[in-house]
């Protein structure tokens, strides 16, 4: 396995347009319950063309032949914006979870003959090859009521005023693209094939970040008690093991551990209140 190496001055000075080969070792699976296998592909890239992992997958799709010359099917993967803002193309590249679109070949495999290893996310059910089903993440947004309960869609005047500091704080939480990097890296979050157990399994860092986002908004905080109910119930914030992997892998550098701390404190206070209310 090749570890990511920064482009050295030397390699950046390689002649523009120099063609070279990189190898992709890809963990493949034809569908849920099917056996996994590894396939290795040789892909030609041109230095300086800006090829990323997805551009190489497209080249494999156009020429689905392994490095040994065996004919195969195109690799299946998920992609959207290709600008690291939609979250679709999240996968494990050389053992690290990230968006494949922003993973440039000249950076992650700088030399001729380098190898890149691609694997699907492990914490979500496989659909096929590198494509996994993250619908659990969107279901969890319902569990924590990640919305503002507005009156309706007709204009009734502006929203509440907000200081620039508060806006900045909320904005960063609101850039969460539900990509799942934080869950893939979390030792407490496990794959759960049984959808009926999702509501009592650990919610994960991204949802806790959303609780923080909405509990800080003057209108949305009206639902804070219900969100904190979810946070004190089974699978709530107390199940965080404080490994702090989430914050290290978040591509948007969202301060997830701050959210976990703040929501944890609020949940404790909320739990005590509920105890004295006898609920």
């Amino acid at each position: 396995m090749t570890s990511p190496t920064p482009v050295s001055q030397d390699s950046a000075k390689h002649e523009l347009g120099a063609e070279r080969s990189v190898y992709f070792r890809i963990k493949r699976c034809d569908g849920p319950g099917k056996a996994t296998r590894w396939e290795r592909f040789k892909v030609k890239v041109t230095r300086g063309e800006g090829a990323n992992v997805l551009a190489c997958l497209e080249r494999i799709a156009a020429n689905p032949v392994t490095a040994d010359g065996a004919k195969t099917t195109p690799v299946v993967w998920d992609a959207g914006c290709l600008e690291e803002v939609c979250g679709a193309c999240t996968m494990n590249v050389n053992g690290k979870v990230r968006q494949a679109c922003s993973c440039l070949i000249d950076t992650c495999a700088p030399n001729d003959g380098d190898e890149v290893v691609l694997e699907p996310m492990q914490k979500f059910p496989i659909v096929r090859d590198l494509w996994v089903d993250r619908s659990r993440m969107f279901e969890t947004l319902k569990r924590v009521k990640a919305w503002t309960p507005i009156d309706g869609l007709y204009a009734t005047g502006p929203g509440p005023k907000e200081t620039p500091e508060r806006q900045q704080e909320r904005y960063i939480y609101s850039t969460c693209m539900t990509c799942g990097c934080c869950l893939e890296a979390c030792p407490q979050f496990q794959q759960e094939p049984d959808a009926s157990k999702w509501d009592t399994s650990f919610v994960g860092a991204n949802a806790i970040g959303q609780v923080q986002l909405f509990n800080e908004h003057p209108t949305a905080k009206e639902l804070a008690p219900e969100r904190l109910d979810a946070m004190t119930a089974a699978g709530g914030v107390s199940e965080c093991g404080n490994a702090q992997n989430c914050v290290k892998v978040c591509p948007k550098e969202i301060p997830l551990t701050d959210a976990i701390a703040a929501v944890g404190r609020a949940a404790t206070i909320h739990g005590i209140k509920r105890f004295f209310q006898g609920k």
Binding site: I150, P158, G159, E162, T163, Q167, R170, Y171, T219, A220
Partner: peptide, 8 residues
């Protein structure tokens, strides 16, 4: 009102 964090 929906809570979009417009710059302030």
């Amino acid at each position: 009102r929906m809570g979009v964090p417009f710059n302030r």
